[in-house]
């Protein structure tokens, strides 16, 4: 698969970024829930959990950035138009690329939001 050249978009490239967002969400949620489920020592710091979530966040953000970069690149190469209402292969391609770009942008912001609790919450209370 080519990443930085021009490739054909499809539904899988379209949902790549939201899938990363989803995996990041489930990982963070389950890890925090698992860590705090025993309901014991609620004032004990949970540094390792925060670090693990932080690490997965960085990986997720890098992957989403790659998706953004690819979609952006291909979309510009294809002319960068917003009006893709023609029933042509080019129109379809451009539409998918632009949608991918928007979804990836949304996913990026969502992953950042999801990670904010590890910045301010340091224990299980």
């Amino acid at each position: 698969m080519q990443i930085f050249g021009r490739t054909k978009d499809n539904l899988w490239t379209l949902i790549a970024a939201p899938v990363i967002w989803g995996i990041h969400f489930l990982f963070s949620y389950f890890l925090a829930a698992f860590r705090c489920a025993p309901n014991a020592d609620i004032f004990e710091s949970i540094g390792s959990t925060r670090v693990a979530i932080g690490f997965v966040t960085l990986v997720s953000l890098c992957l989403i950035a790659l998706v953004i970069r690819r979609a952006w690149h291909e979309w510009l190469t294809g002319g960068g138009g917003f009006r893709n209402d023609q029933d042509t292969p080019e129109g379809r391609e451009s539409f998918l690329e632009f949608s991918t770009l928007l979804l990836a942008g949304l996913s990026f912001a969502a992953v950042v939001f999801e990670t904010m609790p590890i910045l301010v919450i340091g224990d299980c209370r």
Binding site: G105, A109, F113, M116, V120
Partner: peptide
């Protein structure tokens, strides 16, 4: 895009800060 993202981020951070 920019305005809602920034405002929501600030509100979220402020709200989360309160919790502990």
């Amino acid at each position: 895009c920019v305005f809602p993202t920034v405002v929501l981020a600030m509100l979220l951070f402020w709200g989360l800060r309160m919790m502990p």
